[in-house]
Amino acid sequence: MIQIAIFSDVHGNLPALEAVLEDIERRGIQQKFCLGDLVDFAPWGNEVIEKIKDLNIPCLMGNHDERIAFDIPVVPLSKHSQEETDARFIAIDHSKKNITEENKKFLSELPFHLKLNYKIGKKHWNIQLVHSSLSSNDTYLYEAENDDIFVNMLQESQSDTIVMGHTHLSFKKSFEHKKWAINCGSVGRSKEENRLASYLILTMNEHQILPEIVQIDYPLEQTVHGIEESGIPNYYASFLKNEKVSII
């Protein structure tokens, strides 16, 4: 049996990341992978990057990582309210000004995809890791999508399981021939009702892959206080507290 942990979308929320890493450590899982979006919306972007670097956790380039690394202009999104649009511009500008040049370089060199192969007995399992999809790190794929979308991704990547993040909403979808499409949710900015930090454990044996979405508490008030004491709009503190804000 082999177990690996996969997480995504930390978004500068160091207290949430530390809680997830402690939970993974408590379970004795050695192999960890991150699907990207280390920065924006909470004030510990540099500390999160340093933690990933210090622990040598393989990490993909999320869309927010790419924007900060290459100073890509922020474009308003039609799905966002004016309130969120204004807050988003300020929060991303905060990252652009505060992430160190060394850490921007680190973000700029992150891989776009990662393919894992595990051999257990006579069986090879292929695990495809993406931030959001095979062709983009900014595509929103939800559980309600037509199954053909995920089946095609599995076929294109020649994988048994594809794991993604980006939407901040976890799900597990099983298909024929023991295949899975999974969203591991978000560590630092969950859009689920409970706002808990979310990550994925994959347990593999010679016969099957068993996915488990783990959701845990973290010191939320510490994150809220950190946002309120930073130059990041309090909008994001209210969101984490699940107060009524205009957000999609």
Rank of each mutant, 00 (worst) to 15 (best):
A197T: 03
S136G: 08
K79I: 15
Y118F: 15
E193C: 10
C59M: 06
T167F: 09
K119L: 10
I227E: 00
I52G: 09
K179M: 04
E228T: 11
D160F: 01
I127P: 00
N152V: 07
H94R: 10
A91C: 02
L60W: 00
P111N: 07
N146E: 11
E84P: 00
E193K: 14
D160W: 01
N194L: 06
V214W: 11
H64I: 08
S170V: 06
P43L: 03
V48R: 01
I99E: 07
L154V: 04
M164R: 07
Q215Y: 01
L38E: 02
Q31D: 09
I24F: 02
S135I: 10
S133H: 02
S95Y: 06
S95L: 05
T139Y: 12
K53G: 08
M164K: 07
S159E: 01
A16N: 03
K191P: 06
I162V: 07
M204H: 08
L21W: 01
N126E: 10
S8P: 03
S95M: 07
I92M: 02
S198T: 14
Y199V: 01
K97E: 08
E18I: 14
K115I: 11
T85C: 00
S132Q: 03
V224S: 04
G28M: 08
K96D: 05
E22I: 08
I52K: 05
L141N: 09
G36N: 07
I49Y: 02
A69C: 09
